[in-house]
Structures are given as structure tokens and as C-alpha cells.
Design a binder for these strands. Sequence first.
DNA 1: CACAAATGCTACTCTAGAGTATAAACAAAG
DNA 2: CTTTGTTTATACTCTAGAGTAGCATTTGTG
Lengths: 225, 225
Amino acid sequence: MQTAAALATDIADLMDKPKKKRAASQLKDEITAYKRRRILEEASHFFFLNGYEATTLDSVAEQLNVTKPFIYSYYKNKGELLYEICQTGIQLSLTALEEALSVEGTASEQLKIVVERVARIIIENQRYVTVYLREEKCLLPEDARRIRDLRHTFDTKLAALLEKGKRTGEFDVTHPSRTAIWVSGLLSWIALWYHEGGRWSATEVVMDAITMVQKMVQPAGAAHG
Amino acid sequence: MQTAAALATDIADLMDKPKKKRAASQLKDEITAYKRRRILEEASHFFFLNGYEATTLDSVAEQLNVTKPFIYSYYKNKGELLYEICQTGIQLSLTALEEALSVEGTASEQLKIVVERVARIIIENQRYVTVYLREEKCLLPEDARRIRDLRHTFDTKLAALLEKGKRTGEFDVTHPSRTAIWVSGLLSWIALWYHEGGRWSATEVVMDAITMVQKMVQPAGAAHG
DNA sequence: CACAAATGCTACTCTAGAGTATAAACAAAG
DNA sequence: CTTTGTTTATACTCTAGAGTAGCATTTGTG
């Protein structure tokens, strides 16, 4: 069924355009995607440094050696740029969480992997995460809601993991859902605090985060993990 | 000596103005201070909701039933308002920390008091703290530095407390200065996350914060405090 | 009640940046 | 080497808000 449907679409496409044109348009799509990505990178750089409102698209364009209308031909408006930037960090973190949860292991093992991976993602995507934390209020209501939903999913899945550890006796958490928020807060905090080339390396920060979270959920009387 | 100096000042003042006028000007100073405070309150309200850049002084003035030039007669410019707002939360937290440290007690007792008081202050002054965390980049460089110094003092004194607890064996912290940053981050996080009238009460959040911090510094094998 | 001093408001200026209409430059096909 | 469509730039418009000059109004004083 699926194959037939896909085939039908292909045929329709082919009837629409000769083969050559399809290949060319695919390449063009990739180039378009690349341009969009570059715009986003530079925009996030300025949003991170100066804030969303204080950043002019003229300055972003200048950095890319293009002009403002160029940006407007790839993004509807400034708000769409902000939405994409805010979405990125959360989406990556959520994906990492889900991947970590899909790995077989005890709750402690899974939690350690989650914290390690998410902490790394937050450090690597610091600009995106920071801009989200600072500029959430600038998002359109519906965009803000979509992103809040992602965050909520993250917190809920993390809470489920803590709940699981509580049942197995690995963790001592009175309110898993509340503890999940403290943990996700601790992780978010990294974005606001970490400074590349600063006093502490990314690895030190990640290891610290793991230690702190382990202590936060560790039953009294447990030895270090 | 001090008395004599103070007296001299008083005499100089009296020679400048008759008694009546001095009393009147004192009252006026109080009124001026009150007006400044009211402006700051409303401004922080808008900065919190819409962000610094997106807030117009016209809207602040409207909220106070005055006009923009009124605000400009009490503050040099918009940036001065931001500085005062950003400064408030940190200053209060630092004062609370110093007070708590001056109370006799073990490191554990002092830490508990610190976390409790600072958490309360952050909840009560949520707007000010949040605006600081979000809009630090909008401050003039010298203002930003002054506030960073306050934060640094806070972190340093907190680190000293952790160090003390480490020496007495009450705490298990490998790097007191790094742990201090995680603790102060956890406290700051409250401002970004707590929502008045939301799912959890202020008291629950404060108690959670105490528990989390205690766990973060607790030696392995210790019973709950 | 007149006069002085402060307090506050009306009515601007000026800058800056989001978003756009339209023209130029370029590429690809015939 | 022209034609056609796409990509990018030039050169605007329009709004909005920070900051201000100067007038009005209140308040207190002789």
C-alpha cells in the first residue's frame, strides 16, 4: 500500500517535471537548507550577544555579506528566526533524553547517560539554549506554547525515570516530578553559566553535573557511584 | 570625634537653611524616594513581562498615571532604571547571606539558613532577579561589572562556608568554589521557574531548595537533616 | 493676594530598524 | 546569444519610541 502510494507520487512528480529537473531541484533544496542554517547560526550569535530586540537583521546580513531582503527571502520575519533558534536546544535535549531512555539499563545508569548527554548538548548549543531562556517572552503565543510542550514532555519523561528509580529503591526522591524540575533546571543553568575557554572545561562541568544530580537523588547512606 | 564632625555638618546645614526649611526638605526627600521606588516597581513589572527593550517608558508612565518626562525627572535614562532593578535582587541576597553567616552555628545550620532566606528573597523579588538574569547584557559595561562583583562576592562567601563545612567533615564537596556556583545556580533557577499561584507554593519550593542543597553537599552515608 | 519655586505636562525632534516594491544581475535552456 | 525565470540588491516607507524644550500648574511664602 505504502509503496504503491509512494510510487504514485513519484509518477505524478515525474509527469510534472523531467528527471533532470528533479535532480537539479533536489540540489537546490539542499542549498536552500544550507543557507537557512547559516542565517540561523549568525542570527543566534547576535541574539546571544545583544539580545533579540537589540539585534538588527541588517547586522546579521552584513555578517553574512548579504542584505536584509536576502534574509527575508528565507524567513518570513524576525520572529520565525527566533522560533527556530529557541526550538533547537530543547528539541536536541529531548531527543537525547529519549535515546538515553531507550538504552537498556538501571535507572541510575540511564540517569547518568541522560545527564551526560544533555549537559553536552547544552554546552555545544549554548547560544540556542541561552537565547531560549532569555527571549521566550518574545515568541508568539503559539510558538511559545509549542516549545513549552517540548519542555513539559522532557520534564515528564525525566520524572518517569526518577519514579522508576524510586520504585527499584535506587533513588530517594519524595516528589519525582518536582525533583525532575530541579534536575532540568540544574542542566539549563549550565547554559547561563558556562563560558567557553573559562575557568572550567566542558568536561569538568559535565562531570560536575552528573555528580550533583546523582547526589540529589541518592538515598541516604549510599556510596558514591 | 565623630560627634564633633557630625555637629559641624549640622551647623553648616543650619547656617545654610533655617530649621523649618530643613524639616520640609527632609519630608520632600522621603516623597522623592517614594516616587522613585514606585517608578521602579512598575518598570520592573513591565521589564519582567515584556523584556527591557520591548518596554516603553510611555507605558510605565501610563501605568502610574503620569507622563514620560515625569520619569525622566527622577531617573537619568532607561538604563539607570535597569541598573537599579538588576542590582536589587543581588544586593538583598548578598545581605541575607552575610546576615546568615553572622549567626552562630555549624556550617550545616548556617547553610540551611542561607538557602532558606535567599530562596525566600528570590521568590519575593522574582521580577528583579529574573530581569537581571535575562537583561544583564543590556547593562552598561561598568554597571554590569559592579553587579558581577556583587555576585562574585556572594559565590565566594558561599564557597567559604562550604569550605568550612568540608573541614569540619559536615560536607562532602570536592571543589567548594565550583559547588558554590551550582548552589547559587539552583537558587537563581527558582526565579525563572517559580510561578505565583502555580502548581507549588513558595514554602514548598523553599523547602525543596533546602533539601536539594543539603543533598548536594551531604557526605555519603549521612542521614537526612 | 501676589510672587516665587518647584513640579509636571504638551508637543515636539530625531534616530533606527522592520518590512517591502522594484530593479538589476545572473543562470540555465534553447 | 537571446529569452525566461530565479536570486539578490538598491532604495525606499512607515512606525515607534527615546529623549527634550518650553509651557502650565500647583504649592508654599511674605
